[in-house]
Nucleic acid binder design. Structure first.
Lengths: 352, 352
DNA sequence: GTGAAAGCGCTAACAA
DNA sequence: TTGTTAGCGCTTTCAC
């Protein structure tokens, strides 16, 4: 033992320490080195001699020391965190993207903060503001439609940002996604190529979900282009809810409001699944009475009877690619923004 | 302007500030108050006079100040974060729980750190260690089977912990879940009550997923109890993968290895869905040729044809209840640990 | 109701 | 290779 004033058994009367947790200084005095050497042992072991390294490691293990990353963050101005802002946690497409993101970031020591906007741009702005307080080293955010305040916050933050999913000509920084517009166009071309002439598009087109709005706009324009004279049939659930029940309702409304429909295109496989199973229950033959096309290529699509024609999207890759872009920028290796179009593919199956 | 030495336009030559971000001191000097008053404005506005409050708020807005929570964390020893440790992000049951957790915690200003163990206890321990460095105010963790090291870390952390999903007689701290053992027993009693005599249990029973292992043990014991003399039929996929493809494989193996099976119980609705749809494709009548029972009551269960008999689990409620327990403990209002059994319910439908 | 002083636990910069 | 010094930006404590 030493008579150092930092001895843990000689706490200054003026201390404010509320924790009883071990600090760098405790480890240092046990190992008989300076706190700096302990810090180096953890962060840059190659700068420390073998003997010292062993001694410090032993001291860390003995004390059960866990570095306080808030202090590290404050001193180094790096948090080793990434903030992920998604519309909702319980939608598999975003969960897949988060999974991709986490797989790339976790091995590099980055931890993920997650926040859900529930499709509300106002809530998104609040969330961004709250996350900024944590000084994340990177930001992953779904969507390209933000409030002016949110856009400003992100632009001025000086933090690498990846916007994901949607495509836009004017990203804030990096962009990883695909074109919803082109995807819907591709589906429509597929359907027309198959001989269908009376398409209806069904989904939830609330303004909060700009991806859905993009898809609807694309449908409108491309029907005009590919089927001149054909009326635009869109059925809107009027909610943000994406579930199979709503798919059944959309089917019912389509049958009632647009009985001439020969192919029913859904904005999500979730809707399509509900509708396709409802058809089976009601004796509507798919695709002979009515063809159905989904969007997203969820796992169930290739198991349904009949199998569901749909569009495969690069969900997980959006996350992993975004993670790699962030890593490049956070390490300082790369300085410029990138736009990555991951594309999509129409998957022809039996339902259309 | 003042001639205060803290003037932002008079940076000390010795400064180490890497950020150009606004600090409490900047706001204070603009509002002509002490930093302390700005802090109070944010954290305890009722202690500040109206006039001062207005002036400080104006200064905050003018400067675009965002408090640095790492500094706050360090000084106050509270991080206003909760760490959530789940087996995998891309499984809807855990996503639902996270959603419940977030819904309760976010309004109170708590942010969520998320980490995925991929069903590996070793990885879980690493993750806990990494998260401890962030000094979360609470920990949510799925499962009750941890490595000795992980258990020790959690127990000694002094941080409120909620273990979720499984049931155990010896929780680390709080516990929110249901009994997998009882749930499987209930399903089996239901099946036997319906007249089935040759049950087979299919799923993935890798040791990493203790919930699945519990279910299998329950199946074994309860078959012996309810159907004495009947052999125990279990089909194990041999992987941690939970997808419909595996459900199809499990069905095939059951038909090949145990053709006498009259009711096939799956450890997850995902498997059951794959199997049930495969039956439709192969002309196996459900439930007449073979009855099928799932586990989890996923959304698709009530839409399938035939609808799937299964067990409903309180996924989202597990999260929200855990959130409320953590909130109680983090606020200091409650000191004791609680064990909450949220139960389950067998949902009789057409497949069995 | 407000301010001054001290320090949370760590790392950057520099010195030896 | 190792140590010393000076903060990072905030909150606690205590004085007024």
């Amino acid at each position: 033992m030493t008579d150092s004033p930092a001895r843990p058994d000689t706490p200054a009367a003026t201390t404010r320490r509320a924790t009883n947790s071990v600090t760098l200084t405790d480890v240092a005095s046990l190992a008989n080195v300076s706190p700096q050497t302990v810090s180096r042992t953890i962060r840059n072991p190659q700068l420390v001699s073998r003997a010292t390294l062993e001694r410090v490691k032993w001291a860390i293990a003995t004390t059960g020391y866990v570095p306080n990353l808030a202090a590290s963050n404050l001193a180094s101005n790096r948090s080793r965190t990434v903030a992920a802002i998604i519309p909702t946690i319980s939608a598999s497409v975003f969960a897949d993207a988060l999974h991709g993101l986490d797989q790339v970031l976790a091995p590099q020591g980055y931890q993920l903060f997650i926040g859900a906007t529930d499709y509300s741009p106002e809530h998104e702005e609040e969330l961004i503001r709250a996350f900024m307080g944590r000084r994340p080293d990177g930001i992953f955010i779904v969507g390209t439609n933000h409030t002016p305040g949110a856009t400003l916050l992100l632009k001025n933050s000086g933090i690498p940002v990846v916007e994901a999913w949607n495509w836009t000509e004017t990203p804030i920084d990096n962009l990883v996604g695909f074109s919803n517009w082109n995807a819907i166009n591709a589906v429509l071309e597929y359907a027309v190529g198959k001989g269908y002439r009376h398409p209806t598009f069904a989904g939830s087109f609330q303004s909060g979900d700009s991806r859905a709005v993009d898809r609807q706009a694309s449908f409108n324009q491309n029907v005009r282009r590919l089927l001149p004279g054909e009326p635009i049939r869109v059925v809107d659930s009027g909610t943000n809810v994406i579930d199979m029940e709503t798919g059944v309702e959309l089917l019912d409304r389509t049958l009632a409001e647009h009985p001439e429909t020969d192919v029913l295109m859904f904005a999500s496989d979730v809707f399509a699944t509900g509708a396709l199973l409802a058809c089976a229950r009601r004796g509507i033959a798919v695709p002979d009475d009515l063809a159905i096309i989904g969007f997203g290529d969820f796992e169930v699509a290739r198991h349904l009877v009949p199998t569901l024609t749909t569009v495969a999207l690069p969900n997980e890759e959006i996350g992993s690619r975004a993670g790699r872009l962030l890593l490049d920028r956070m390490s300082g290796a790369v300085s410029g923004a990138e736009q990555v179009d991951l594309g999509f593919s129409v998957i022809p199956r039996d339902s259309a």
